[in-house]
Design a binder for these strands. Sequence first.
DNA 1: GCCCTTGTTGATCAGGCGATCAACAATTGA
DNA 2: TCAATTGTTGATCGCCTGATCAACAAGGGC
Lengths: 205, 205
Amino acid sequence: MSRPPSTRGARKPPAERSAEITDAARALALESGLAAVTLRALAQRVGVTSALIAHYEPSMDALVARTFGDIVAGELAEIVALTGALTPRERLKLLVQTVSDGSRTDVTVVWVDAWALGRRNEQLAASVREQMDAWQGVLQATFTAGARAGDFSAADPAQLAWLVLGLIDGLNAQSLVRWGGASDRGDLVARTIAVLVGLPADALS
Amino acid sequence: MSRPPSTRGARKPPAERSAEITDAARALALESGLAAVTLRALAQRVGVTSALIAHYEPSMDALVARTFGDIVAGELAEIVALTGALTPRERLKLLVQTVSDGSRTDVTVVWVDAWALGRRNEQLAASVREQMDAWQGVLQATFTAGARAGDFSAADPAQLAWLVLGLIDGLNAQSLVRWGGASDRGDLVARTIAVLVGLPADALS
DNA sequence: GCCCTTGTTGATCAGGCGATCAACAATTGA
DNA sequence: TCAATTGTTGATCGCCTGATCAACAAGGGC
């Protein structure tokens, strides 16, 4: 009557297992949104029991918040690293192109879920605010640098940064819901933002 | 052993009961978002059993979708009725002021939940697309009328309408999450949209 | 080769969700 | 007054969520 030997969950060092869980959470969030990051979904993906997931992640709220932060902060860091050495105008151009080229619907799904879930998960809400501030900061710095270089005419870089951030988020969410993620808005966003910073309409296209 | 007489749910004609449920769903959605519209929450609010709610509303997905549609369509109809007779410029001005004055956080909560829940509720997703189209249509008509009157310089009214819609939705969601709904963005939105349609920056303020 | 540490499991709990159905009771019509 | 209609309930089902804990077993140290 002895139990058959378990075929699942080969014993692994905690660091490795923990990394597996973190990776699974990220993948799950990018594929199906933060709402899909549940104990059992993670367990199935990693190939272990939900009890083990709970053992490594004592709070799902915290894991979801951390997963959101990792994804968004990672993306922002990537973009900043890619555009750090450029002139403000080139930087803004690449930044706008990156966030509105329609290939980021996975990240948009994460943002949309984060907005909704944030009202029931205070840790997530805090992370959302943090990441919004980070994005706003990068945009504001770009606008300020551009204005200082005499290239942009941004009267209020802080406000303009919030506006552009809202524009990007809104249009991304819109195209996700309305067209499933792939919308052919041409370079409308690039032209709009160009006008807003006092550049010729095609300066960022 | 007879049951004590029930103190709840006085017998009411179906039409009245149905209206109660619809009203409760609307109130619940505006207070706490569409995610709060559940069988038991409705039952408690109306003062009946969840079984009765299920009897009147055989599908919660359908009720949620209907509630969303009622709220958003009602708001749009209200705004249109209020601005129908105005010139395009005055109409756009009032429209922009209405949707970005910070007193509509309840409707914003509904939108944010709708975006997230729409991925699991196809009827809701369809309603979201429908209401987005309706808003876009009103904006587009306004831009077209303004251009025909020689007041706006809207090259592509359709695209511009989507852009403005995205801007409004994004900024509303942003201020909801970031500042709890009340953000002092001044008339940044009005100035931005004014520029986008070729008006002086303060034309819509 | 054995023991002890510890990674992992299975079972289970409390709570939420939508949904169903026989039975009850309030009202209406005859 | 009695019977038929029908609005309403209580109990329950299946499925999901996060979380807990005793028991098991794999592996390293001795």
